[in-house]
């Protein structure tokens, strides 16, 4: 893992992920069992899927929830607090969806307001101050797009949250539990290690939104979902996530306990590794991890740029009569 953190990507066998953590680090390993992108989207959105609270209850030994952003109000779409895992204290922040309609209305369908992100930032700072590792759990269709969110600076809150995470001087592990919806998800998504459950999705825009823009029709969402390459194995191939946490057969919604156990195993092994890395190395590796994402084409360095034609060749402009 340290090798991997420091940017030396090595073969799957030697990249440090302990086999007992059971993580999937090669998309080919699950190529036979993977469904379509649209199936992944539906699994990720399944209301019966374990949400942040279920995972926290199952994966940690103790948890005390903390409330409020100290500025405006407590956002129920973001939960956070201090937890204990294997004798280690950590700060956990997650986006919370509901599993019933009433609960979803109370949780705003897991769509945070600016105060939710500001609560998250407050908890990040708490983790940094007392050098507790930070664990974030992503599960949101996106940041809330309503007028009150705009008034209170949704974009600014997300930007500050991303900024805080890029420089937080403590180990950060990100787990995408279900839906990773655009900037609203990335606000919790900058870490030393980014993991995702096998059927989680992570996307720049919802498949419906993409279909509406690209094909002028919501019905093409399935096509857009596969084009966006938002499913777990795709994210692994693109280097967006470092490893997938296997789900029980049939998906996480079938067995909450087993899912939480898998998350626990992954977290303990990652935290154990990260806790041995000096903070300065951690921060520079985190920088390099995100620095390396992006594909561009550049003309080869040795090649001189094409010379501009001299003005007498370009002509002064055609004389019109």
């Amino acid at each position: 893992m340290v090798d991997k953190l420091l940017g030396k990507r090595t073969a799957v066998e030697t990249n440090g992920h302990l086999p007992e953590a059971g993580l999937i680090t090669d998309a080919r390993a699950i190529a036979a069992t993977r469904g379509t992108a649209w199936q992944a989207v539906q699994l990720a959105r399944d209301p019966k899927r374990p949400h942040a609270q279920d995972v926290i209850a199952g994966a940690f030994d103790r948890f005390q929830e903390l409330h409020g952003d100290r500025l405006f109000r407590d956002d129920p779409a973001v939960i956070g607090g201090i937890a204990e895992i294997d004798g280690l204290y950590v700060v956990v922040v997650g986006q919370q969806k509901g599993s019933s309609t009433e609960e979803n209305i109370a949780r705003n369908f897991g769509m945070p307001h600016p105060e939710g992100y500001r609560k998250a930032i407050r908890l990040y700072r708490l983790a940094e101050k007392f050098h507790l590792p930070l664990i974030t759990l992503i599960d949101t269709p996106g940041a809330f797009p309503g007028p009150e969110a705009e008034e209170r600076g949704q974009a600014e809150a997300i930007a500050r949250s991303i900024e805080a995470m890029t420089r937080l001087a403590t180990p950060v592990v990100v787990v995408v539990l279900g839906e990773g919806g655009s900037g609203g998800a990335l606000a919790l998504g900058v870490g030393d290690v980014v993991l995702a459950l096998e059927n989680a999705v992570y996307s720049v825009i919802s498949p419906e939104g993409a279909a509406a823009i690209l094909f002028r029709s919501n019905a093409e969402a399935q096509r857009a979902a596969s084009a966006l390459r938002l499913a777990g194995p795709d994210l692994l191939e693109l280097g967006i996530v470092d490893a997938l946490i296997p789900e029980p057969p049939g998906g996480a919604q079938t067995d909450h306990t087993a899912t939480a156990k898998a998350v626990r195993a992954a977290l303990t092994s990652e935290l154990e590794r990260l806790s041995r890395v000096p903070t300065a190395d951690l921060l520079s590796a985190r920088y390099e991890r995100f620095r390396a994402i992006g594909v561009v084409v550049e003309p080869s360095a040795g090649q001189a740029p094409p010379k501009k034609e001299p003005w007498w060749r370009r002509g002064i402009g055609k004389v019109r009569l």
């Binding site: 420089r167 900058v190 996307s203």
Partner: peptide
């Protein structure tokens, strides 16, 4: 905003630029 045709890679550019601004 982010360029849809580059999917999650475009999304991650946000983190990349913000990290550089942090320095």
């Amino acid at each position: 905003g982010a360029r849809m045709q580059e999917g999650t890679i475009a999304l991650m550019q946000m983190a990349k630029i913000v990290a550089a601004l942090g320095r």
